[in-house]
Design a protein around this nucleic acid. Sequence first.
DNA 1: CGTACTAGTCTTTTT
DNA 2: GACTAGTACG
Length: 761
Amino acid sequence: MSSILDNLNDKQREAAGHIDGPLLIIAGAGSGKTRVLTHRVAYLIKECGVNPYNIMAITFTNKAAGEMRERVDRIVGEGCEAVWVQTFHATCVRILRRHIHEIGFDNNFTIYDTDDSKTVMKRVLKKLNVDPKYVRESTVLRAISDAKNDLIGPDEYADRYRNDYSKRTISQAYDLYQDMLRDNNALDFDDLLRLTVALFKNCPEVLENYQHRFKYIMVDEYQDTNNAQFELVRLLAKEHGNLCVVGDDDQSIYKFRGANIGNILGFESNFPGAKVVKLEQNYRSTKNILDAANAVIANNTGRKPKRLWTDREEEDPVFFSIYDNSAEEAEGVVSEIERLKSKGLADYGDCAILYRTNAQSREFEARFVRDGVPYFIVGGVNFYSRREVKDMLAYLKTVDSGRDDVSVRRIINVPKRGIGATTIEKIATFADDAGLGFYEACGMADEIPGLGKAASKVLAFVNLIDSFRKCLEENGPTETLKMIVDETDYQNELKEEDADDASERIGNIDELINTLRQFEDDEPEGTLSQFLEDAALVSDLDSADEDTSRVMLMTVHSAKGLEFPRVFLCGMEDGVFPGYMSINSDDPDDIEEERRLAYVAITRAQDVLYISSARARMVRGETQYNPVSRFIKEIPEEMLERGPSGNIIGGRTSYKSSYRSSMPERKIADDGKPQAPIFKKNARALMASGGLSGSVIQKGATLAGTKPDYEVGDRVMHLKFGEGEVLAIEKGPRDYQVTVNFDNAGQKIMYAAFAKLEKMR
DNA sequence: CGTACTAGTCTTTTT
DNA sequence: GACTAGTACG
């Protein structure tokens, strides 16, 4: 009898087929870990009779979640919608929305991004009369974040460091910061995790409910989990013990944000009786590339011994070139890419340029622009962090609830309407004294002493927001956003301010409008609040997907999980990569982390790897002369083919496209989709993360609008709402709209393609 | 209250 | 080198 697991190699099958008890899958780079995870889900459902409802898979990025969801859909088909496939943060939001009131918070909380946190912290430090010259917000926020990741709340923090004078300011700031978040009904990213754990610890019945439900739990990129995430997973898996984690200790590169590599190294002692499976066969790279990667990573101590191997034989060497300066490096790399393209050896989309820091993208970009080569820079400023987008979101948040002071204060004078800092402070003081929210206080502007003429301006602002609220009720979110843009004349403001980047910013606003409309179309029951929640958890990285026609530029961190036929690893100099911070650090693990990062970089390459360094480079406005990276010296000389200074000697052998078709499930460039604007992709990723209200949106679902196979009067079955009777079917602009009266859930209007209604016979 | 200039920070990476 | 926040001045 054939099995889903037949498609896997022995080790993969061993891993995917292990069902009961804790399981650690050490998955080397390119060893097919997503494949194993998705097949395991399929196997559980199709061959072990496990109810999809009992399965949870957790990832770090929306992109990974979307990808996994898509692939599970493909293998399992119908019925897998009930599987939870989400990021840690989205999972927590989903749980907290339902239960956080049980630990004294409002279920309707908003989520603050790092930018918002910074704004709050600034006010905290001001209130505490701390001189920002001596204590920086970022330092305090870092310390608080670390504490949260270790599940230390403000009270415990104060307790713990009672006698440590140096921590006193931080302790006070932590306390006040949490107060302000609470006043604003907001949680920051770290709170999402911390409070979910707190919820579980304080409300055993809630925990039991989820423990009972999730009989099978899978965690991707386990080497990147922090202590809070560990605790979350441990608690959830406690009842059934069927915890399957996948990761690679050699690819642990997020220590700086709290990841604890000890979680993966100590899995067997934390979960006694754990089975361990190592996936060491690499399906991605040539032998040369793997040898180089192995040679570098072998210098790390404290790792699980493993050695990647491949049965690929193609033998282009690893190319290494030293340039006189970074401009020549950029020139050399770009001209090599152009050469490859013109000789038909590679398409632009086959090439990726990887670097340690975002700032390094500049010189490459300049070359690409000059030569008219299509390129795409991943990362940089997150779409949702751009000023114009944040402004619009702040308007929407204010319209939606007005409870979020940070948002109200952000836009009360944007565009300029004559409400200055003094006025804002007076309102804030009044609000504090009266125990009101900032926005509420605005509504009472004429009762606030000392506002003078400004009072009428503030009231005009309140009226403006009221008119938007009315619009929201009558015409929905998208129309409201359009009205906001029109009424505030925001686009003209942008033009006057800086004509050069106005068009890009206006474009971003248009994209936001499109995304909101898409959201409304896709989820007719979705509210503005929901959209705003989702938006807070989406990053630009999610758009780093299939773009077949452009050279991709990104940091090594962003490249994790991706693969490219030709990789250019640039700026390999001591001080750049490894970064000077790690070189000067007293903690030897910092260098090891950089080495893991180098390992990640090298293993992104499928067919050819080009490494380069520059003798001179501008860093923060000054020229640095750095030696060749120590990591390059760790690669045996015979594995490298050195180019003469300033010149890459390019691919000696021809490029065989046959490698590519033989690769199992390539991630990049496998569907030839025309490239969509960046934000459209974000939208898709956003949708893929699932409605946080509990409804699950299928990424793969089309809106093509085939006529459903049921008719008015038929009894139908819905995954979440159960049985019901079809009252109406209407053809909408993109899909059929179905009205169903559910026996238990009442009347709902839904889109046919999404609702996946099944006719009862 | 708004504008224009200055100083300081940033460059590690993300939800 | 670029961006941002903060300050002085109009």
